[in-house]
Design a protein around this nucleic acid. Structure first.
Length: 280
DNA sequence: TTTGATGT
């Protein structure tokens, strides 16, 4: 009798681990699903450069690559709010989850900005103060040239929050960096530990029965005053350059329609494509 | 400052 007790104790412990772990997993999946549309992005084929782990933040998810020392994507939902406000700008923050020592001065003197993926203003306005703080994690930053970050990219983010969100009521955004095709060609092109992307993508989806999407790719070397329309691409084109599958749960037939072409009808892009930036 | 870096 006494001899069987350790075994029983082990069985009970195992039960707790399995049930508890299962519950945790379910809850985690639910939380993730609430922050993405049609599934968490996946890599199309197993590869070192595609590997990422998901960092969950307040209001947004980040796919973190320990190899590129970059966020490969950030995903968040924006819905219309009565009076969008962001409050004062928080300080940048080290993120210990990255393991890599990326302090807030990591980009100093490099000629690159600490460019947000999940944006400060829109996340703050929609998801509140705690979420805003999370956008200042260094794990949400990637090296961006100032003329892109402060001008063309800023204009795009402004159009998303001030034009698309009110127009459609809610949108899902996925955004991230694009690296040269061959990993080794760019492996030493870094700010400290952080690999420097050659371009950035942003995908905006209006969820619904018949979802619509608009997608952009913007290279580092812009002036900043270009028309947003010059950078329209299909989602397929972005998947080809990143190796990611952005909406793994979207049925194939729907994906073909949504991802295969550029369709600007109904977005009113021409009204805002040349809107000047805020800081020029 | 709806983006940031720089310098004190």
């Amino acid at each position: 009798m006494l001899r069987r007790r350790p075994l029983r104790r082990f069985a009970v412990s195992l039960l707790f681990v399995v049930v508890g772990g299962g519950l945790w997993h379910l809850q985690e999946r639910e939380l993730r699903d609430s922050l993405v549309w049609m599934g968490v992005p996946e890599w199309q084929e197993p590869s070192l450069t595609g590997f990422h782990r998901v960092l969950r933040n307040d209001g947004f998810l980040v796919g973190w690559s320990d190899l590129r020392v970059n966020p490969l994507w950030a995903s968040y939902r924006l819905q219309a709010v009565e009076s969008p406000e962001s409050g004062p700008r928080p300080a940048f923050r080290r993120d210990w989850r990255t393991l890599w020592p990326i302090g807030t001065n990591h980009y100093a003197g490099s000629g690159f900005d600490r460019g947000h993926l999940a944006p400060n203003y829109a996340i703050a306005a929609v998801h509140g103060r705690d979420a805003q703080h999370d956008t200042f994690y260094m794990s949400n930053m990637t090296p961006q040239r100032p003329d892109l970050n402060r001008r063309l990219w800023q204009r795009l983010e402004e159009v998303v929050m001030d034009h698309f969100v009110p127009r459609f009521g809610a949108v899902q955004v996925i955004t991230g960096p694009i690296f040269p095709e061959r990993f080794l060609d760019n492996v030493l092109n870094r700010v400290g530990f952080v690999e420097i992307p050659e371009a950035f993508y942003k995908i905006i989806v209006v969820p619904g029965e018949r979802p619509r999407a608009l997608a952009f790719v913007m290279p580092q070397g812009v002036r900043g005053d270009e028309s947003l329309g010059d950078y329209l691409v299909s989602i397929d084109a972005i998947e080809a350059r990143t190796g990611l599958d952005f909406f793994p749960r979207l049925p194939e037939s729907a994906a073909k329609v949504l991802e295969g072409r550029v369709d600007t009808r109904g977005w009113g892009l021409e009204e805002v494509a040349n809107r000047p930036g805020r800081f020029e």
